[in-house]
Structure formats: C-alpha cells, structure tokens
Amino acid sequence: MTEPVIQVEGLYKNYGTVAALRGVSFSVEEGEVFGLLGPNGAGKTTTVEILEGMRTPDSGLARVCGLDPEKSGSQFKEMIGAVLQSTSLPAKIRVKEAIDLFANFYRVHGNTNDLLKRFQLEEKRDAFYSQLSGGQKQRLAIAMALVNNPQVVFLDEPTAGLDPQVRREIYDIIEELKGGKKTVLLTTHYIEEAERLCDRVAIIDYGRVIKIGTPRELKHASAGTTRIEVRLAKPVENGVLGQLDAVANAREFDGTYVLHSTRAPHTIVALVKHLESDSNELQSLEMFSPSLEDVFIELTGRRLRD
C-alpha cells in the first residue's frame, strides 16, 4: 500500500463561535476522484482550503503528498492546482494573458495554446475576463488550475450556479482529468455530480463526515429503498404515513411527503387506500430510484438542497 495522497485527520476549525469543522477525517489515494458532498455551510470549503494551505486549522492533521500545506511553501504550491469557490480576476485581463501569467509563475508549466484548445477557449483568447460567461469563466479557472500540470487538483464547487447544460460540459472536463491519473478532490452539493464523477464520496454535514464510500456502496447502504414523493390535497397527521406497508421512514419537507419504501408497489396501494378512507386526495406522486440524496436524508433527516 502506498501512502494516501491526501490525508486528513481530526480537523477542527472555529470561526468565532461558529464551529465549521468538528473532527473531519478522510484520505484520498493516488489517482482517485474524491468528492466532499454536503449542503451549504457543511464545511467543504474550509476543509479544502486547509488542504490548499489557505487556512489554518485549530487542530488536526492535513497532509498533501506527505507535505504540510501551510509550511511547505513553493515546493507544495508547484504540486497542486485549484479552483477556488470565491475568487476573481482583474476585469480587463485577457483570457490568454491570464493563462500565460499564471503559467509563468511555475517552474514546470503547460502550453497556453494547448490549454486554450482543450478548454474550448480559443475563440475567447483575446476577450477580457469581464466579458466571459459563467461557464467560460469556470473553464478558464480550471485551465488555470492545470497550468502547472499538478499532481493534485482541488475543485471547490466547480459547477455551482451554472445552468445544467454548462454543468455537463464541466463534467466532461473533469472526467477527462480522471483519465490523466491526477488525484482530484471535488466538493459539491449536487448529487448528480458526486454520483457521476467521484470514485468515492464523503458525505459531510455540520462539520463532520457522516459517511464515506463509493457512490454504489453508499446507495446500497440505504437498503435498496425507493423514494416516493407525494403532494396531498390535505395535510396528514405526522407519523401516519410512516405506518404504511413497507415504509422505512416518512418525512415532510415544505408540504411534500417523502417516503422511503422497500417495496414501492405495496406502499402505493396502501397509500391510496389510506387517502380514500381519509377523504384526502393525491395531487402528485413521483418515484425515484435510490440516490445519494436518500442516503443524506436518512442520515441527517434533511434534504441536501434546501
């Protein structure tokens, strides 16, 4: 067994009275795409930026390629690349200039024209940063994260705020990285992204890792349940839906009832019968095969996107 490329043990971090991290531990092997999945405020950015050497933990251990990110200086920075969640570039810098500029800071760096081509920024090479769309800015940010051909890449919510089609473009780019044997740490609050891109996922909530595994393992752990989401004409009493046939658990989020069922057909028949006897009515019903969202609901009692 080789050493993990990223090693995190018992990280704690407070901002004043806010406990952002409360003992985060995980490790990432070489060549893995590892996801931190969690809602806003879970502590993803704090964790990643500690690993980038941008923030100081109160306690705990963080190592990247065996180095302490905070103390290893240039040697460390030459090895990593990152897309930050909150950052910007000067409004009047041109796309090509930005890549050239950052490339020049590194001892080893890729060719700007290749990067422009690879990230479909060729026709935008002379555009000002302020003229780019959200997706183009993000492609530029990823290109800049890769200028030094880093061994480890950190992507902090690389698709947040982009529309679904643009998001999928970025997925293709990240999948390409996977082929390149780089170690990638990706944070996201999109289930789809974690499921599609990550070899392994750590689900993180309120500054703690609550579950780690491959997307498949995690879904398996949610016992092969189907998620049934219904809206009803009248509210029902708490707990009634949880009593229905084959229902593992039932919760209500803003008027939508979310049931996890081990045998969906049985549950649906039971539900309809119950509603008839209660002179209630079904307004809508949707079924979902198990996803990481269900794992999250089961573990935390909340939905990922609220």
Binding site: E52, M54, G73, S74, K77, E78, I80, A82, L84, S86, T87, S88, L89, P90, F102, F105, Y106, M144
Partner: peptide
C-alpha cells in the same frame, strides 16, 4: 484586488 478575491487566486501560485 484583495476585496474582489483576486489576490487569493495569486496566493495559490508559488509567489
């Protein structure tokens, strides 16, 4: 640059 978060991008580079 600091307020706009531009400096922190430079901070990632060996600089």
């Amino acid at each position: 640059f600091r307020e706009a978060g531009i400096l922190r991008r430079f901070r990632l580079a060996p600089l």
